[in-house]
């Protein structure tokens, strides 16, 4: 009979993963993957949350599933490009269906959203369970990802030079794209998120920016779902910026917060999973949840303690 909480063997949990060169290379890939997934999701998620699109992210992450499955069935491989096309197609179809149902039928937004993404998800699960066990994607993988298998993935070669493993490379690329997109289009993203009328008067197309953002979101989800699964991706999108918003009130600060937070999530989740011998991706989100809880308690902006001690002052502030 094993205990639920095994005794914490300090050296085994914290030191052993890095002891030999082989272990180090193996585990560094896992942690690196975790950092990049939570970083890319956290950065794009800051805008998703600020635009109140968190549930749209939820819907899209469920909605890409049939696209992935069909791409996989037709090409019989998990090559990045077809998967990407399939996922983006399904994601866009999903958001289109939601909008169509919302506009053309008496359904309210929440019902349209829930109906569409559960249907897409059910179709995806059905397709994937019918693909048999010989495939790389299996139900467990979509539910909580297989970040632990990152080092097992095949490598990509440039000629004969090995550049790195496929998932690491693709998430690295996506992270780069996101950082670039945010730095280049920061102003557009801010204006369209904050004040659509101002964007109109500045000659910006709100629709284009919206769909651009949705596309980047779909790319991020595709690159991440293999490691953390389609549902934990949502956590990765929402937790960093909401946690940061308990301390910072400006977008650049919230975006920068994603960097330390993603490092912390990844290491924390890795050690927790090693100690308890459970899902790494799940542990990363549990760590994120703990961070959120601490921020909620101690945060300088609307944290529980701050509100208790400084309530009087804020009331005065608002009255003038």
């Amino acid at each position: 009979m094993t205990e639920f909480f095994p005794p914490l063997d300090f050296s085994d949990t914290f030191w052993a993963p890095w002891a030999t060169q082989k272990d180090f290379a193996w585990n560094a890939q896992i942690v690196g993957m975790g950092i990049m997934v939570s970083l890319s999701c956290g950065l794009i998620g800051s805008f998703i949350v600020a635009r109140k699109l968190a549930l749209m992210g939820d819907a899209i992450s469920h909605g890409i599933l049939p696209g992935l499955a069909i791409a996989f069935i037709t090409t019989q491989s998990n090559a990045l490009f077809p998967m990407f096309i399939g996922a983006c197609g399904a994601g866009l179809l999903c958001s289109f269906c939601i909008e169509w149902l919302h506009k053309k039928t008496p359904l309210k937004m929440d019902a349209a959203l829930g109906l569409t993404f559960t249907s897409f998800f059910a179709l995806g699960v059905l397709l994937i369970t019918q693909m048999g066990n010989n495939t790389h994607i299996d139900p467990e993988c979509l539910l909580y990802g297989e970040i632990g298998f990152t080092p097992l993935a095949e490598s990509i070669y440039w000629g004969s030079v090995e550049i790195g493993s496929r998932p690491l490379l693709s998430i690295g690329l996506v992270t780069l794209v996101i950082i670039l997109t945010i730095t280049v289009f920061y102003k557009q993203l801010m204006v369209t998120s904050f004040d659509q009328t101002l964007s109109v008067s500045l000659g910006l197309s709100v629709r284009t920016i919206h769909y651009g953002l949705m596309l980047v979101l779909a790319i991020t989800i595709v690159a991440s779902f293999e490691s953390v699964g389609v549902i934990l991706v949502i956590a990765m999108l929402i937790f960093p910026s909401t946690t940061a918003s308990f301390f910072f009130t400006r977008m650049p600060a919230i975006l920068l917060c994603s960097f330390p937070l993603s490092i912390f999530y990844s290491f924390g989740g890795f050690f927790l999973a090693r100690w308890l011998d459970c899902s790494i991706a799940g542990s990363m989100v549990v760590v994120a949840m703990v961070c959120f809880g601490i921020a909620w308690l101690l945060g300088t902006e609307n944290g529980i303690l701050t509100n208790l001690f400084f309530r009087k002052r804020t009331i005065l502030d608002h009255s003038n």
């Binding site: 600020a50 998120s193 904050f194 008067s201 009130t249 400006r250």
Partner: peptide, 15 residues
């Protein structure tokens, strides 16, 4: 929305 007063005014300069 996570913007400061100055950020909002600066948005007016974006054009």
């Amino acid at each position: 929305f996570p913007v400061s007063v100055l950020d909002v005014v600066l948005m007016g300069r974006y054009g």
